[in-house]
Design a protein around this nucleic acid. Structure first.
Lengths: 342, 342
DNA sequence: TTGTAGGCGTTATCAG
DNA sequence: CTGATAACGCCTACAA
């Protein structure tokens, strides 16, 4: 039923190989035969069978992007960038959803489905340092966003510590001294949480400020809901707060929502800052001061590194490099910055 | 270099067919040989070659989801649901980004890359009614979110008209009479824009209210930015406004941002409502009244319909059905609803 | 219950 | 520049 190259060849009165040459824009084909073949292709409505081509070539032209969830704005925006960058390199993107759960992340690394594509861009959330060796897989892999896990695996990291430190220092410069932090981390975790917390506490320490543990609002999952809950717990503890640092933007936005409910003004009563620079924060009221981690550069770099490894036939373990993308502080209204004309 | 079934067979001292039987959990295999095969598989680290299997089977176990952009929260959340539903049916999801641009949408429908998967779930934005016949492709296709385009193609629609009408009626019930609408549409478009506008104007007409065209804020793209710009234009026209209906939530949020800038209180001075029920709206300050279109049901239904068509070998054109998912009005603070405990 | 032969549609090799 | 022919790795008959 489906039209094959053989059919096209017969129709055009040439061999299968010639059809293949035409389809793949192989240089040495005489214009005459080429036209004949193209005519046959359009007459018959021929379309390439990718499974066959992939089998023959030993590659698929697809890569997998494994992320926690699309509904987390950071990953949605990341996915957009990855898809665009991949398209530029002639690749198409299969999205795998891990939920940020360790077991599912390990599975994404080893499952059969992984074999459907040529390589993996992987943004883990639940993996622990002890899992590092699991990353030394025998196919092309590029890791995203983390540093603690690296081992010898290729990865593109963001400046978690530096970014959080810059944001915290900014709050200090605004005269805030009772800064709450929203969104804690699993101590065994290797994720952004612990790194950003390092940046936060480091900045406080440098300023000679002691952090009251009641000002820590834990949130294992990073969503608006958990951010709001954590903020409530901090406020309910009775401790005074004149600023809030959310370890990412959705946490900060959830916290800001609670401040609003409690009648606290931002930034007059409480200044707020986040991390990620998602679009929501640019349009919240007030707009959110945050750290732009260089998402587009991260995505682009990851794709290029991966494609490079694919074409050169390198697996994850060999010769891994670390690239760190520099973060940038974006000062907005929530810390008393300028009102941006959106 | 790669381990094949042949290698496993040799190692286990059986035939290739037996290995295949074990791998595919074919019932009639003696436990003894099965164990032997499994041992060989794990010894050798065998992993199935999907290209070969796909070629043989004539199917890939992948479906394509074509959407405008992931960074639009509605589509991000939709993608999550689609990925989960597809996984339940044993499928994996390739994401195609159309940008909502007509040309790219047409290309997604016909390009070679489309052939890499077994079917397509397609959410068009830029197509016009005149393009309807282009949807009668010869592979399994399920259309999302639109009604005007249907033709004879299978599709899952949301209640655009009913939802927008319900939201508008709600604003009227709150005593608002000078309602602006944000987010216009291409008149030739077949998209949600025209349908939701119908719901909006229908409700006004039923209430005997004439719509001042200065209260229409056009926005061809639906983003916070364009919503904010449209809102500014409406306000700058000098026309009075006591409510705003955003044709989707990001438009409404962008508009709300401008109201905030101008010192207008929501909902006291201006009530605001949207469409989509994205997570942002539940945590904005104030929280956003909106229409929940039944996103999870839409995604699940679309996947099941598509898989059904794939397994039954039906192409797009034949025997298309339309399923409409009922919308639900979510009343929140932006129209004076209860303060939700987030 | 297990093995053998043939084909899935393309691409690569190597003559002509 | 073009055409046979043999892989690519797996699956479905059909046989044993």
């Amino acid at each position: 039923m489906p039209v094959t190259m053989r059919d096209v060849a017969r129709r055009a009165g040439v061999s299968v190989k010639t059809v293949s040459n035409v389809v793949n824009e192989f240089p040495h084909v005489s214009p005459a035969t080429r036209d004949r073949v193209l005519a046959a292709i359009s007459d018959l409505g021929y379309q390439m069978n990718f499974s066959a081509r992939n089998l023959s070539l030993g590659r698929t032209g697809m890569i997998t992007l494994a992320v926690p969830e699309m509904r987390l704005p950071y990953f949605a925006e990341l996915a957009d960038e990855v898809i665009v960058a991949a398209a530029e390199r002639g690749y198409t993107v299969l999205v795998e959803r891990t939920g940020g759960v360790r077991d599912r992340e390990l599975e994404a690394l080893t499952s059969d489905r992984r074999r459907m594509t040529d390589g993996l861009i992987f943004s883990p959330l639940g993996l622990r340092p002890a899992d590092a060796h699991r990353l030394e897989v025998d196919y092309p892999l590029v890791l995203l966003g983390e540093r603690a896990l690296h081992g010898s695996v290729h990865h593109v990291a963001m400046g978690n510590v530096a970014g959080a430190r810059a944001a915290t220092e900014h709050l200090l410069q605004r005269g805030r001294r009772r800064i709450a932090v929203i969104g804690s981390y699993d101590e065994r975790g290797a994720g952004a949480g612990s790194l950003r917390t390092q940046g936060f506490t480091g900045a406080l320490a440098d300023a000679g400020i002691e952090h009251d543990p009641r000002r820590t609002g834990e949130a294992l999952e990073w969503t608006r809901t958990t951010g709001a809950e954590a903020m409530r717990r901090v406020l309910d503890s009775g401790v005074e707060v004149d600023a809030v640092y959310g370890l990412n933007d959705v946490l900060a936005l959830g916290a800001m929502r609670v401040l609003f409910e409690r009648g606290l003004r931002v930034p007059e009563d409480v200044a707020v800052a986040g991390f990620d620079d998602i679009e929501d924060g640019r349009f919240s009221a007030p707009s959110l001061t945050t750290v732009q981690p260089g998402r587009d550069e991260i995505a682009r770099t990851a794709v290029w590194l991966l494609v490079d490894r694919i074409t050169r036939g390198l697996s994850a373990g060999s010769n891994g490099r670390e690239l760190v993308v520099a973060p940038e502080l974006m000062v907005r209204e929530s810390t008393g910055g300028e009102t941006l004309p959106a």
